[in-house]
Amino acid sequence: MDDLTGFQRDLLYVIAGANRPSGQDVKEEIEEYYESEINHGRLYPNLDTLVNKELVEKGELDRRTNYYAISDAGEQAMQDRQEWEDQYVEL
């Protein structure tokens, strides 16, 4: 995950915390967190990056709507990141 932007990491966490969210579902969650509108030109290229890095899987809900799901590699990357963070921050 060291090669991801903070925004991409946030997308990964949103996807991991949901059950096969659509792009619109991800957009709504991330807009709530960022407290601002996220346009499609920012959202979908970053989702595609996560898919291309095989951290997220993309599938079809219907002919117009895709879903996103965390992959095994994505889960492992998140776990590795958490372990790395834990050595610096104790909450």
Rank of each mutant, 00 (worst) to 15 (best):
13 Y>H: 07
14 V>Q: 02
15 I>V: 10
15 I>T: 01
15 I>P: 04
15 I>D: 00
16 A>P: 01
16 A>N: 10
16 A>Q: 08
17 G>N: 13
17 G>V: 07
17 G>H: 08
19 N>L: 07
19 N>E: 13
20 R>V: 01
21 P>R: 02
21 P>W: 02
21 P>E: 01
21 P>Y: 04
21 P>V: 08
22 S>G: 02
22 S>R: 09
22 S>Q: 03
23 G>Q: 06
23 G>V: 06
24 Q>L: 11
25 D>H: 09
25 D>I: 04
25 D>A: 11
25 D>C: 02
26 V>N: 02
27 K>A: 03
27 K>F: 03
27 K>N: 10
28 E>F: 01
28 E>N: 05
28 E>H: 05
29 E>N: 05
30 I>S: 03
30 I>V: 12
30 I>G: 00
30 I>E: 03
31 E>P: 03
31 E>K: 00
32 E>I: 10
32 E>P: 00
32 E>K: 14
33 Y>I: 15
33 Y>S: 09
33 Y>D: 06
35 E>L: 09
35 E>M: 09
35 E>F: 09
36 S>H: 11
36 S>F: 04
36 S>R: 13
37 E>Y: 07
39 N>T: 08
40 H>F: 09
40 H>N: 13
41 G>E: 08
42 R>D: 07
42 R>K: 12
42 R>Y: 10
42 R>I: 14
43 L>C: 03
43 L>P: 02
44 Y>R: 05
44 Y>H: 14
45 P>H: 02
45 P>M: 05
45 P>L: 04
46 N>M: 05
46 N>S: 14
46 N>F: 07
46 N>P: 04
46 N>A: 10
47 L>N: 06
47 L>W: 01
47 L>C: 06
47 L>V: 07
47 L>T: 07
48 D>N: 15
48 D>T: 15
48 D>V: 14
48 D>C: 07
48 D>H: 12
48 D>W: 07
49 T>R: 13
50 L>F: 00
50 L>W: 00
50 L>T: 06
50 L>Q: 06
50 L>R: 02
51 V>Q: 04
51 V>W: 04
52 N>T: 14
53 K>E: 14
53 K>Q: 12
53 K>W: 02
54 E>P: 02
54 E>G: 06
54 E>A: 12
54 E>W: 04
54 E>C: 05
55 L>Y: 12
55 L>K: 05
55 L>D: 05
56 V>P: 07
56 V>C: 06
56 V>A: 04
57 E>W: 10
57 E>M: 13
57 E>Q: 14
57 E>Y: 12
58 K>L: 12
58 K>M: 13
58 K>E: 15
58 K>F: 10
59 G>I: 05
59 G>L: 04
59 G>K: 02
59 G>E: 04
60 E>C: 03
60 E>S: 14
60 E>K: 15
61 L>C: 00
61 L>I: 15
61 L>P: 00
61 L>Y: 13
62 D>T: 07
62 D>Q: 09
62 D>M: 08
62 D>E: 13
63 R>I: 14
63 R>V: 14
64 R>E: 15
64 R>C: 10
64 R>Q: 15
64 R>S: 15
64 R>V: 13
64 R>I: 08
65 T>Y: 09
65 T>L: 04
